[in-house]
Design a protein around this nucleic acid. Structure first.
Lengths: 217, 217
DNA sequence: GTCTATACCAAGATAGAC
DNA sequence: GTCTATCTTGGTATAGAC
């Protein structure tokens, strides 16, 4: 995304290539079940070289989390700035967040294991999660003011929690129940629909139509 | 549940004690992060002895799953037999299933990792999951006929999937977001409320009252 | 059925040549 | 920066005495 001279865009710096390969592997299987030798092989370098770039396996996890974190922060900030009452904005945010979680899904597969293997992540993870919550809360409030949605006071917090839970774990369900082994991008629509259906009962007719047209895209 | 003479109920046979301790440890941390030596220590026996009773670590997982499975089957069958249109039956089933998932929560923390470490579980897990789905589907149908609930045709399947997702992963959310480290039985009510709130928008006034009184117990 | 001792192995990590 | 070779650790599992 900022390589001095992009004459040979085929391969980035080794460090970047390592991160790319590692992310793919971690998304496939939990980090504990991906060995450093496997990572090295998939990058096409030697294991010793891998350790030159990242002194420990945990450093890899940390580096990947940093990338996720910065993207998440961008997203939340963008949504905080937005004051548009355009209906598409809300579904757009949902879609972006959704896609981000998907790209870094290894982080969410077993959060407690993740934190156990990299304790320094405890607070950052909590922070991102809270930030996302506030963003959704903000979004819902704006939608309520615009008359797109109407959620009884007492049901708001449970709804928020469920949005978080479903947007994080729909992929696991799909993998298990439908027997989908290698989840691909096209399954993202399924998950998006699951999260949307949490909101649907509370939507106005107009908002429901907008949501449906977004889902059909 | 069928011990020849129950004169000394204080301690069961070693095999049972092993399973009890192991379940507790697995619920605390993922099986991969619980060592056999730890298990032996917590049972109060030697590691060699542990291996006498269970030849491999996987055998422990399998044995625990069997217990879960049989309880799950009982539950689903009981609900299939029931033709009562008593409102409490539905919330009762939900509560039972919920408590079962809670008792064996280690099975659900990272299903893909579980299946990877014990591939023979793939089909049984899928079967239990489907069985539970049908039970909930059956339950919803009966509730609809009794006029307690009204879910539009198109929203039924997404709702079912969300019930499964939330009833399985609420504990993870709580652990992360509220900073609850050692989840205890009292948190069960919180999770039950999350699942209930998925149904709430579709309930009749009468059913909603029944649900609320169940939740307050 | 329970223990002690020990083999085995895979994975993370380091040293040092190129 | 990249490689080869090697060390180290800790966890699973077995042998065999009691």
């Amino acid at each position: 995304m900022a390589t001095g001279s992009d004459a040979k865009p085929k391969l980035g710096a080794t460090k970047d290539r390592i991160l790319t390969s590692t992310l793919a592997l971690f998304n496939e299987r939990a980090p504990d079940r991906v060995t450093t030798s496997e990572i090295a092989r998939s990058v096409g370098i030697n294991e010793g070289n891998l350790y030159y770039h990242f002194k420990t396996k945990e450093a890899l996890v940390l580096a990947l989390f940093k990338k996720f974190e910065s993207e998440a922060v961008d997203l939340v900030q963008a949504s905080a700035r937005s004051t548009s009452t355009e209906i598409g904005v809300y579904s757009g945010f949902l879609r972006d967040w959704f896609s981000l979680v998907w790209n870094f899904r290894f982080l969410f597969r077993d959060l407690s294991a993740l934190v156990a293997s990299a304790p320094s992540l405890t607070e950052p993870i909590k922070a991102v999660s809270s930030g996302m919550q506030s963003a959704v809360r903000h979004m819902i409030n704006q939608m309520m003011q615009a008359g797109f949605i109407s959620v009884p006071e007492k049901e708001q917090e449970p709804l928020l929690a469920n949005v978080w839970i479903v947007s994080t774990y729909w992929a696991v369900y799909l993998g298990l129940q439908e027997g989908v082994v290698n989840l691909k991008e096209e399954h993202l629509g399924w998950g998006l629909n699951q999260v949307s259906s949490l909101f649907r009962p509370y939507l106005s007719g107009e908002a429901r139509d907008a949501l449906d047209s977004m889902l059909n895209r």
